[in-house]
């Protein structure tokens, strides 16, 4: 569960990238974070994961403050960044070993999970190769396996579908659904509105650092009293902001 309370992020003197954001993402749900470029999605995600310092407010991950108790909070988090070019000189399995060590995953359990997810994402034959020889999609899949390896109760993915082939994208969506059904929280940002429409239990639309809407697609339609597509609703919402 992720609780964002009155959170603000100011860059420089007075540029508010995120402005007094309040949001609760519950356990067992998939939450889609939508917004145009520069809306504040990635900044919010970076604050949740501890990459960026919070200027004001508080973020709790399973009740632990990311600012005051970062290690406990981070133990509950798994993050897949939008740029998967990580530790390129390591082999795939070396990277996963590293993740297992950092999160203290039992080696037998780790092996079992690597087997399962590498097979699911068709990466089992590539794990001994260096990450730098992987394609963008393969790197993305490796990071997803890395996150699933330590089974965090909160899964955060920044643009996770970018670069994935249709089969892998389908598998990832399936994993995300199963993961949420097991009682975990899944938060992801996306530009692909169809994915959000089909996958998310709730969505949040952010623009210019302010949260414009939180709820289900149906609630959004009811609010705007229209039968438009999500794309039209999204454009209407963000252009009026």
């Amino acid at each position: 569960m992720i609780e964002i309370k009155n959170t603000t992020k100011v860059f420089g003197k007075n540029f508010k990238a995120v402005d007094n954001l309040n949001l609760d993402i519950k356990a067992g749900e998939i939450f889609g974070f939508l917004g145009p470029n520069g809306a504040g999605k990635t900044t919010t995600i970076k604050m949740i994961t501890g990459i960026t310092e919070i200027s004001a407010g508080e973020i709790l991950v399973d009740g632990f403050s990311i600012a005051k108790d970062p290690i406990r909070a981070k133990e509950k988090l798994g993050f897949v960044p939008d740029d998967p070019n990580v530790l390129l000189r390591l082999s795939g399995i070396e990277y996963l070993n590293f993740i297992a060590s950092v999160y203290g995953v039992n080696p037998l359990l780790a092996k079992e999970r690597i087997d399962k997810y590498a097979n699911l994402f068709s990466l089992e034959a590539d794990l001994q190769d260096k990450i730098q020889s992987f394609s963008h999609g393969m790197r993305q899949k490796l990071l997803v396996i890395g996150v699933l390896l330590h089974q965090p109760s909160n899964l955060i993915l920044d643009e996770p579908m970018t670069g994935l082939d249709p089969q892998s994208a389908f598998n990832l969506k399936k994993v995300m659904r199963e993961y949420a059904n097991e009682g975990n929280t899944v938060l992801f940002s996306t530009h692909v509105l169809e994915v959000a429409e089909k996958l998310c239990d709730r969505i949040g639309v952010i623009n210019k650092g302010k949260l414009l809407f939180v709820g289900t697609i149906e609630e959004l339609r009811a609010q705007t009293k229209s039968e438009q597509s999500l794309e039209d609703l999204f454009l209407e919402l963000t252009s009026n902001a």
Binding site: A110, L127, Q128
Partner: peptide, 24 residues
């Protein structure tokens, strides 16, 4: 490098995080 489509074998070894960072 031409990859074989065979399943690769691997070991998972758990290290102390400090050692894991050093090893990286």
């Amino acid at each position: 490098k031409k990859r074989t489509k065979e399943r690769s074998t691997f070991k998972v070894i758990k290290h102390n995080p400090v050692w894991a960072l050093f090893s990286n």
